[in-house]
Amino acid sequence: MIAADNLPETTKDGKFDLLVYLQARQKLCEAALSQSVPQQYPDTIYEAMRYSLLAGGKRLRPILCLASCEMMGGTMEMAMPTACALEMIHTMSLIHDDLPAMDNDDYRRGKLTNHKVYGEDIAILAGDGLLAYAFEYIAAQTENVPAPRVLQVVAQLGRAVGAAGLVGGQVVDLESEGKSDISLETLNFIHKHKTGALLEVCVVSGGILAGATEQDLQRLSAYAQNIGLAFQIIDDILDITATQEKLGKTVGKDQQAQKVTYPSLWGIEESQKQAQQLIEKACAQLEPFGEKAQPLLALAHFIVNRDR
């Protein structure tokens, strides 16, 4: 693992350099994730868990956790177990989302989906294994953080993943397939829960671990809710405009499944405008934190300007 004090400089010519920042923290996260789930017996299940967990990706969720913790005066070391757990849970959601019973996808991050390699049975169990282990990992591996803060993170993460969060959003998403009369209110509900809830806990958990005040946690929560919705709007746009090679997964799935999306309601241009407005609202929440907020500000703009 890279020691935090050996990370490359994150500034270039006196300005914050997001590319350098992301590369350094992605490398740190990759090493931590590989160490977090070592290969062991039963070989098949750990191999399947590692296959999807280490398949690449932007590592946006763990990086958001690390960034918010650092902004609030904490360290990457105290947040890394939670950051890894967040990526485990995100990976679980992707494995299960790709199953034939859900979105029935063949590719994820440019590779065959888990069930295409290991079968549906092992894919379901790999997701289950990652979900359960995520909570164990936070509880067992977090150091130099008061126990009540760790407990608060575990509770908030459980809510974000369950029926009040990700699972609830997925259920409404499945129930909405093929229906042309889905309202903007329902669409917002789906994505605030299915996508936004996990992104929100990524940001807020970093603040909790660092001992942020309730007022600051509310600001982090508002920031995260806005970037979460913007993230989904851009995702919907990319499903129309990007190529499979660029996106690393099958494109056009929303249209095939007859899903109502933000572009189908607003069009692409208006969707981009709405996403930009959400990012501006998110960044406004970080004004009190000054220069310390640079990574989170840059990550917000990265979300709305990404091409994959």
Rank of each mutant, 00 (worst) to 15 (best):
G129P: 05
S36F: 11
E200Y: 03
Q152K: 15
N305D: 10
E291H: 08
H96C: 04
G169H: 03
L130E: 02
A32T: 01
H115I: 00
A134M: 05
L22P: 12
A31K: 14
E136S: 14
V172R: 06
E70Q: 13
A140L: 14
I124H: 09
E77C: 07
T250N: 03
T250A: 08
D103W: 02
Y262S: 04
R108Q: 03
S271N: 01
I63M: 09
Q294L: 12
A275D: 00
L131D: 09
I227F: 00
P8M: 11
L229I: 00
I124P: 04
L54A: 05
A67H: 10
F135Y: 13
T243G: 02
L28K: 14
L220W: 03
Q294S: 13
V260T: 12
A210I: 04
L131H: 05
E177T: 12
S271H: 04
Q218T: 13
N305F: 07
E120R: 07
A300P: 07
T241Y: 00
V203S: 09
S52Q: 10
Y51R: 11
L174Q: 11
F189M: 14
A101C: 15
P8D: 11
A140P: 05
D103Q: 01
A85F: 07
R25N: 15
A275K: 07
S205A: 14
G252W: 07
E214C: 09
A257K: 15
S264G: 07
V150M: 10
L166T: 11
Q215H: 06
R308I: 00
L151Y: 14
E30K: 13
A3K: 14
V304E: 01
V154H: 06
Q40V: 06
L286K: 07
L19D: 15
L151V: 15
A282L: 02
I190F: 04
V167T: 14
E200I: 01
L174M: 13
R25T: 07
V153F: 02
L209H: 02
Q141G: 06
Q40P: 08
K179G: 10
F16A: 03
I237Y: 05
D43Q: 15
G127K: 04
A24E: 11
Q141E: 15
L60V: 11
V37H: 07
Y46L: 07
I63S: 04
L199N: 04
G129L: 06
E87M: 05
Y46P: 09
P288M: 03
A132L: 13
R149K: 14
G14P: 10
A79G: 12
K249F: 04
L265Q: 07
D5Y: 13
S183D: 01
S180Y: 10
M72I: 10
L54P: 06
Q35I: 10
T82V: 04
G57D: 01
A164E: 15
T186K: 11
L278H: 06
R219F: 01
F302K: 01
R306H: 06
A282D: 01
Q40N: 09
L209M: 06
K194L: 06
F16R: 08
Q276T: 11
L187N: 02
L184F: 12
R149T: 08
K253I: 00
R149Y: 09
C65G: 13
K116R: 12
E287M: 03
K15R: 14
Q244D: 09
M88A: 01
